[in-house]
């Protein structure tokens, strides 16, 4: 489990995360990234390459003092958003026509009756996230980890060197911000 700071001054990024956490996210993210049809000129920017490279960086840094765990999580989240946006854009423009509703997975344990998410929803959230990052980077970091990477509040707290209550408070605040951006009338 995460060590607290080591003696080398206080670096916010200094939290050491468990191998299992990173591996868990990586093993979920990588197959998704591999499915992206990459049209960019530079294969180095393929989501698979980005995820893979970030992971390698982490592997190599282990046992050498500096731990770019948080940086890697940031890249993972960035790639995750990129995957979702890329796929959503394709869905919008391709055969189904814009705004098709995705099928529900009815045996999802968390919220059996949740409504479908459309490609537009994904794009709208992404735009709002971009604004949040400008307004409040720390809150954007928290949403990145909590939502896009599916980390628990405890894990995010450890990763960012914050208390769990701070994470929860900031997350509520971020959600309010996003809600306002997405549907300003609802506030």
């Amino acid at each position: 489990m995460p060590d607290t700071q080591n003696n080398s001054g206080r670096e916010d990024d200094g939290a050491w995360l468990s191998v299992e956490l990173i591996d868990r996210i990586y093993s979920k993210l990588r197959p998704l990234a591999a499915r992206v049809q990459w049209r960019g000129a530079d294969p180095a920017l393929h989501p698979s390459s980005l995820v893979h490279e970030a992971y390698l960086k982490l592997i190599k840094s282990r046992g050498q003092g500096a731990r770019p765990d948080n940086e890697v999580l940031g890249i993972f989240a960035h790639v995750m958003r990129q995957i979702m946006v890329d796929a959503a854009r394709r869905n919008k423009t391709e055969k189904r026509g814009g705004g098709a509703v995705l099928p529900l997975n009815s045996d999802h344990p968390v919220s059996p009756q949740r409504e479908a998410v459309s490609p537009e929803d994904v794009l709208t959230l992404d735009a709002a996230m971009t604004e949040l990052r400008v307004e409040n980077p720390r809150q954007a970091d928290i949403i990145d980890r909590r939502f896009y990477l599916g980390m628990t509040a405890d894990e995010v707290a450890a990763a960012l060197g914050l208390s769990k209550t701070t994470v929860e408070r900031e997350e509520r605040s971020a959600r309010t911000f996003l809600r306002n951006r997405i549907s300003p009338g609802a506030a």
Binding site: M80, I83, M84, L102, V117, P119, T124, F147, R175, R179
Partner: peptide, 17 residues
């Protein structure tokens, strides 16, 4: 929308997209 999305797993959404 935020609640709709946040109540789901991002990996699952990406998978479906």
């Amino acid at each position: 929308l935020t609640e709709r999305i946040f109540n789901r797993d991002a990996f699952e959404i990406a998978d479906q997209m």
